[in-house]
């Protein structure tokens, strides 16, 4: 498999960072996921070849890291924190609100248009600005149900205009 130009450039740039090739595995898997939506079988096979480690080894690594997935998520993955600081300020209600608004189950399922998925996540480092969520990598903080409505609507229209 040939990676996209961008990913090839990443690979070439990162491989020189380390005395052992496999060290790039974790960040590179995440970059590949950003590109293809999830860590694909092809990427795993290609990395296995390039890094000279088994596919099983790579899959073991993938299963350890909560951000890595081997199935697609929505184009906008809505990750709501319900950990302690968010809990105290309504994190569970925010999660329920996002789930109901989008009509998808938490941690599984994608809206029929492929646009959104909802995940319950652990602390994302926004505790002082709780409740908080990330949509893909973007932080949204001091949430209220109204704010969530607006944020999700904005993503939807942003996608429609592209």
């Amino acid at each position: 498999m040939k990676f996209s130009d961008q990913l090839e450039a990443r690979f070439a740039g990162m491989i020189t960072h380390y005395p052992a090739r496999r060290s790039l595995l974790v960040p590179f898997l995440l970059y590949s996921q950003d590109e293809y939506g999830y860590v694909t079988d092809e990427v795993i096979a290609e990395l296995s070849r390039r890094l000279e480690i088994t596919e099983l080894d790579i899959r073991n690594v993938i299963s350890y890291y909560s951000m890595l997935r081997t199935k697609p998520a929505g184009r906008f993955n809505v990750q709501v924190c319900t950990n302690i600081c968010c809990l105290l300020r309504g994190g569970e209600e925010m999660l329920a609100h996002a789930r109901e608004k989008l009509g998808v189950q938490v941690n599984k399922g994608i809206t029929p248009d492929g646009m959104f998925s909802v995940e319950e996540v652990e602390c994302i480092g926004a505790c002082s600005w709780a409740p908080a969520m990330q949509v893909n990598y973007t932080f949204h903080e001091n949430l209220t149900p109204e704010k969530i409505d607006k944020i999700l609507d904005d993503y939807r229209s942003e996608a429609a205009h592209k």
Binding site: N83, I84, C85, G125, A126, C127, S128, W129
Partner: peptide, 11 residues
């Protein structure tokens, strides 16, 4: 790898 719940300073 700041991730202890309650901590958001390194950010």
């Amino acid at each position: 790898d700041e991730s202890e719940p309650g901590t958001c300073k390194d950010r």
